[in-house]
């Protein structure tokens, strides 16, 4: 009996000794996610407005961007940035290549979400702003986008959670984020079940933080309160 207890204690102690490393790796994944979200919102907003523009020079690149990104595997895009670009003389660190690749990837999905939100706005919202003398740009900034932002919080949150999970792809370009860290630990301990499960729980905690944050924003910025 006491032997079982001793073994269990030893087991948990060994796992606990790995936790600081796992938390560091989780934090790195979370940091990357925040940067990816920032890049994706910038790219997504520009691409959405570009796709809706009257001007072909804006519309075509935006359309190509969304078409290309959504039609190719994310992993291939990550490889293009990290392994492909050095061939053209542009050498990026795994961190920078990862943030750019995932940010630009996620941006295409954000663009479609924003475009959907803009399309869902009743035409009268823009018209009443124009009729009061606002320029289309001012009306977009003060009247349309603030409403679109509130409307798209749920799908944007899904996309952010996706971006977080996609950071595991960066394990393939030598970035020691949560997934690669787990693999390294497992290679040393031969305990894949324990440590992949821990990684999964840590990912789950992080996506939950994101969705809770989004739920708070959604309540805070309801259209009518």
């Amino acid at each position: 009996m006491s032997e079982t207890v001793t073994r269990l204690v030893a087991y948990w102690e060994s796992i606990a000794s790995y936790m600081p490393g796992f938390l560091d790796a989780s934090w790195l994944a979370f940091e990357i996610t925040l940067l990816v979200i920032a890049v994706s919102w910038g790219c997504g907003l520009l691409a959405a407005l570009g796709k809706l523009s009257r001007l072909r020079v804006l519309r075509w690149p935006a359309t190509f961007y969304v078409w290309f990104i959504r039609g190719t595997p994310t992993l291939v895009q990550v490889f293009l940035f990290y392994f492909g670009l050095p061939q053209t003389g542009l050498r990026l660190s795994p961190f920078v290549a990862g943030v750019l690749a995932l940010g630009i990837n996620s941006g295409a999905y954000v663009a479609e979400i924003v475009r959907g939100g803009l399309a869902a706005m009743p035409r009268g919202q823009m018209e009443s702003a124009l009729a009061l003398g606002m320029s289309p740009a001012l009306a977009m900034r003060r009247i349309i986008l603030p409403q679109v932002v509130r409307m798209i919080i749920p799908p944007i949150t899904n996309e952010a959670a996706s971006a977080l999970k996609n950071t595991s792809l960066l394990s393939t370009i030598t970035l020691v984020e949560l997934t690669l860290h787990s693999q390294l630990v497992i290679a040393a301990t031969y305990r894949p079940f324990d440590f992949y499960l821990i990684a999964a729980v840590l990912y789950l905690l992080m996506t939950t933080v994101l969705t809770q944050l989004a739920a708070w924003f959604e309540r805070r910025f309801r259209l009518d309160h």
Binding site: P122, G124, Q125, S128, L132, Q147, L223, D224
Partner: peptide, 15 residues
């Protein structure tokens, strides 16, 4: 447009 006001069928207030 600032000198010509317009009111619409569907109000179009900003929610």
């Amino acid at each position: 447009r600032t000198r010509i006001g317009m009111v619409f069928q569907s109000y179009n207030l900003w929610p």
